[in-house]
Computed example of a mutant assay.
Amino acid sequence: MTLVKFNNGLKNNAVNPFFNDVFDSILNDSYLGNKLVARVPAVNIAETENEFHIELAVPGLKKEDFKINLDKNVLTVSAEKKAESTDEGKKFSKREYSYSSFTRSFTLPESADHSKIEADYADGILKLIVAKKEEAKFQSREIAVK
C-alpha cells in the first residue's frame, strides 16, 4: 500500500515539487513534533492570605530527580531523568535511550519569606509553598464610620 500526499496548492514550488514534500514529511513527523512540544512542565501559581502556591505538572519523576535552589529572590526548579534499558543477549537493530530535563525559574516578590519554603511531590505534581512575611500578610480590620 502506498500513502500519497496531496498538495493543496498552498506550497507551490515550480522548480522541484518533490523538494517540499520531503521536508514537509520530515518536519511534520509526529515523533519530532511530540518531542519538541513540551520541554518545560505546566505551572499553576496561586496566592492566598498567608502564602504563595506553585504547582508543577511533572509526572514520571521521583523526589530524588528534583533540584530546588534559591538565589537571592529567584527560585529555580530543575529535574533530570535518565532511563536506559539494557537487554543482554539480544542483537539490536534499534535502541532508544530516554533523557529528559527541564529548568524553571520564578522571581519571588519582596513579600515572600525566603526562610519558609516547603516542597512536596505526590501524584506527578510538585507543590511548592512559599510563606509570606508577617508584615506582608493581608491585614483586615473594621473601619468605624464617623
Rank of each mutant, 00 (worst) to 15 (best):
T2P: 09
L3K: 13
L3G: 06
L3R: 13
K5E: 12
K5I: 10
K5W: 10
K5N: 08
F6H: 13
G9T: 02
L10H: 11
N12G: 01
N12D: 12
N12H: 13
N13P: 02
A14H: 14
A14E: 11
V15G: 05
F18P: 00
F18S: 12
F19V: 06
N20Q: 14
F23W: 06
D24L: 09
S25H: 12
I26V: 05
L27T: 10
D29M: 03
D29E: 05
S30D: 15
S30W: 14
Y31K: 08
N34V: 05
L36K: 11
V37L: 11
V37I: 13
V40C: 06
P41N: 05
P41W: 06
A42H: 10
I45M: 14
I45A: 14
E47A: 12
E49A: 15
E49I: 11
E49S: 14
E49P: 01
F52N: 00
I54W: 01
E55H: 08
E55M: 10
A57K: 15
V58K: 04
V58T: 05
P59D: 02
P59H: 04
P59E: 00
K62Q: 07
K62D: 12
K63I: 00
E64M: 04
D65K: 00
D65A: 07
D65V: 07
F66N: 02
F66E: 01
N69V: 14
N69L: 13
N69E: 11
D71W: 00
D71T: 14
V74G: 03
L75E: 00
S78P: 04
A79L: 04
A79I: 04
A79Y: 01
K82L: 14
A83P: 03
E84H: 07
S85Y: 09
T86L: 10
T86K: 11
D87Q: 12
E88Q: 12
G89I: 02
K91H: 13
K91S: 13
S93K: 07
S93F: 09
K94C: 03
K94Y: 13
R95T: 14
R95C: 05
E96P: 00
E96F: 13
Y97W: 10
Y97F: 15
S98K: 15
S98D: 13
S98C: 08
S98H: 15
S98V: 15
S100N: 15
S101A: 15
S101R: 11
T103G: 01
R104W: 05
R104T: 07
R104F: 05
S105C: 04
F106C: 01
L108A: 04
S111H: 04
D113F: 02
D113H: 03
H114F: 13
H114E: 07
S115I: 00
S115F: 07
S115K: 14
K116Q: 09
K116C: 07
I117D: 01
Y121G: 02
Y121A: 03
A122Y: 09
D123Q: 06
D123V: 04
G124H: 00
G124Y: 03
I125Y: 01
K127D: 10
I129K: 10
V130F: 04
A131V: 02
K133F: 02
E134P: 02
A136C: 00
A136H: 01
S140Y: 03
S140R: 04
R141F: 14
E142M: 08
I143F: 08
V145I: 15
V145H: 08
V145F: 12
K146V: 08
K146N: 07
